[in-house]
Amino acid sequence: MKKMKELVRMTFLTKFAYMKAFWFNVLGTGASIVIYYFLWQFVFQKQNSLNGFTMVQMTTYVILSRILSSQFGGGINEELSQWIYEGKIGVELLRPISLFFTLFAKRMGEFLFFLLFKGVPISILCFLILGGTAPAGVLNFILFVLSIFISIVIMFFIEFMVGICAFYTYGYHGLMFTKSALLSILSGGIVPIFLFPKGLAAVLTYMPFAGMVSVPVNIYLGKYVLAESAKFMMLQIVWALVLCLAAHLFYGHVIKKVVVQGG
């Protein structure tokens, strides 16, 4: 636990070194929220509700989903790919802790930093300016937070697998872009999943991606009854376990073939 804490601290120190770049990132997220807000306002001029969503609820969805999905641009996959690509992976493999541990601690650090300096302040600011609803209930809020924490674990394993694909591609920019685009769409980060064609929407609801944006935000808005919330969160946990297993199998397979480049 102490090792985790120290590694999280290191991530914070690293993040602080790039604070100026981070402010631009925050600004970008803010801008995207405003754009989506006006887009939906146009839609709601003609009607009062869309599939049970009122304008205020949609505003809430936009704020929360944009902020949550702004994480897709980051994550540990870029760094892991870079390590593989540049050969630094050798050094990381020589640490007295496992690669999973190092990267998970980094991911937690990144997430906490995100919450503290972006998630919470930008949410509050947007709620004050654009308006939005409070959580449907205390329990909803608690489950919302819990669900986000589980989704970080899901994200971590997906990022990990995307990251090691660099073993095969020897490049990582395409991987990064594909990951961030796919996750944004499939998680409901760009538009709510109910807007997709019926069949696709039904499938997506049960995919691990929904757990990253759609599930927590719907829980927050009270779109799911308690039993449904519980069901979707159980599903999140199942996906986390499945992806954890997949990541370990993939890693075990790849690590034997590691060609540590250069040197």
Binding site: T14, A17, G87, V91, L94, R95, G262, G263
Partner: peptide
């Protein structure tokens, strides 16, 4: 303990 002349084990930004 390992020292690679062309690789660093330290954290770059801290």
């Amino acid at each position: 303990g390992v020292v690679f002349g062309n690789r660093s084990v330290l954290w770059w930004d801290v």
